[in-house]
């Protein structure tokens, strides 16, 4: 790794945060997707991208809403039904079991579901766009 930089010049130290701005600015001219496919601003491609965005937004809001929504319902639940906080399950008081242990696998599962779905709709989008 300590070999000289490109072109045989001795390696030189460069600050890597600083030049990013300019790079980002220059690159803005080129979209992520190859020019002939999507930047023609044809009605069809704009339509495809819009529907992809809509679909991903719906999916994200759905996963977020269901998981975070049900989590956020817990304090209210504990306030309205104080007896619930006294219940014990598997030797632990219910609030501790839910917030200290069970929450985490649920979050991971929800994340996994989201990734699976999001990648699927991106694949479908790619097939639509790349269809000759």
């Amino acid at each position: 790794m300590s070999d000289p930089g490109e072109g045989g010049r001795p390696a030189q130290r460069v600050v890597v945060t600083s030049p990013r701005t300019r790079a980002a600015r220059v690159r803005r001219a080129q979209p992520a997707v190859p020019v002939p496919l999507l930047s023609e601003e044809s009605d069809l491609s704009t339509h495809y991208v819009r529907s992809l965005i809509k679909e991903q937004r719906r999916l994200g809001l759905l996963v977020c809403g269901v998981v975070c929504g049900s989590l956020a319902a817990l304090p209210l639940l504990f306030a309205l039904a104080p007896r619930l906080g006294e219940q014990r399950l598997l030797g632990l008081p219910l609030p501790w079991l839910v917030l200290g242990v069970l929450v985490f696998p649920v979050l991971v599962l929800a994340g996994w579901f989201y990734v699976w779905q999001a990648e699927r709709s991106e694949r479908e989008f790619a097939e639509l766009v790349e269809r000759p």
């Binding site: 979209p31 992520a32 997707v33 190859p34 991208v49 766009v129």
Partner: peptide
């Protein structure tokens, strides 16, 4: 803004072998 949105949301590597 439409161009930027395409860049944010379209998967990379579409089309001719993909860029980036």
């Amino acid at each position: 803004v439409d161009r930027v949105m395409v860049r944010l949301h379209a998967p990379e590597g579409l089309g001719s072998g993909g860029t980036r």
